[in-house]
Write a protein that binds this DNA or RNA. Structure first.
Lengths: 131, 131
DNA sequence: ATAAAGGTTCCAGTGACTGGAAGCTCAAGC
DNA sequence: GCTTGAGCTTCCAGTCACTGGAACCTTTAT
């Protein structure tokens, strides 16, 4: 398979796949013309990577997870630990965004949004929030 | 005020303040010794920036908001539009993170996390998810 | 013969800082 | 006066995970 084929099947842009090779996540063979030649196992790995990235795992987490995936002596506890750590990170981000959301939606509701300059949003940002 | 003083009062690292000057968000005067010399208005702007950034506004949004803040002919509708756009972005991120969270926590719960290699998390990532 | 599509490498840019090196200035203590 | 340390300066490089683009090569179809 050429890069375009794997790209389509794995649902990843060719650029991303080249980047993954550059950082050592996949190591496709090369044809005599210099083109990358992907095997089923490469496609499999790339699909794995696409899914893991879609769940928000960092590239380094993906590297770890791929390593565990290919290691039959792994313990599921190792995988679970990585996933739980990431889950905690997601929860932290959600909490942070919800706090922003709360403040901001409050301010947006308080703002008339008309042609006059008075604006509770700017007042809050400027620290004059007498709310 | 020297940079360390404003940094402390605005709650921003000196590095960040220098960066904000570099991209034109603040323009402190200079003392004869070459040190940046901040006025109250600069401190005020930096505090504004710190709050806006804490609400997740991008630097470009901050630039726009600062501009509106200093423009007495502004219409509050302009401010509200920026804020609403950002609020929508926050909501999109929250939704995305919650979807990740749902999938991931489901997988984490399904994983025994023991010394054996069987792992629903890896199975799902590898596309063998027969769930 | 040519043109389009797809492949290759390499370099630069993204956002918003952050770390570190090399060097200058200032205030305090001896 | 001299030294020490803190704080200031600039500049360069790195972060993360790509993404865009240039310049060039290969394959396939017309």
């Amino acid at each position: 398979m050429n890069i375009g084929d794997v790209a389509e099947r794995a649902g990843l842009p060719p650029k991303t796949i080249r980047y993954y090779e550059e950082i050592g996540l996949v190591r496709p063979l090369r044809s005599t013309n210099g083109y990358r030649s992907f095997q089923e196992s490469d496609l499999h790995k790339l699909t794995f990577l696409g899914r893991a990235r879609a769940l928000g795992f960092s590239i380094e987490d993906c590297r770890t997870l791929l390593g565990l995936y290919e290691d039959d002596t792994r313990e599921s506890a190792q995988v679970k630990a990585v996933a739980e750590e990431h889950l905690g990170e997601i929860d932290r981000k959600i909490t942070e965004l919800q706090a922003m959301r709360a403040t901001l939606s409050h301010l947006v509701n308080a703002c008339h949004g008309d042609e006059r300059p008075d604006c509770p949003i700017l007042e809050d940002l400027s620290g004059l929030g007498a709310d």
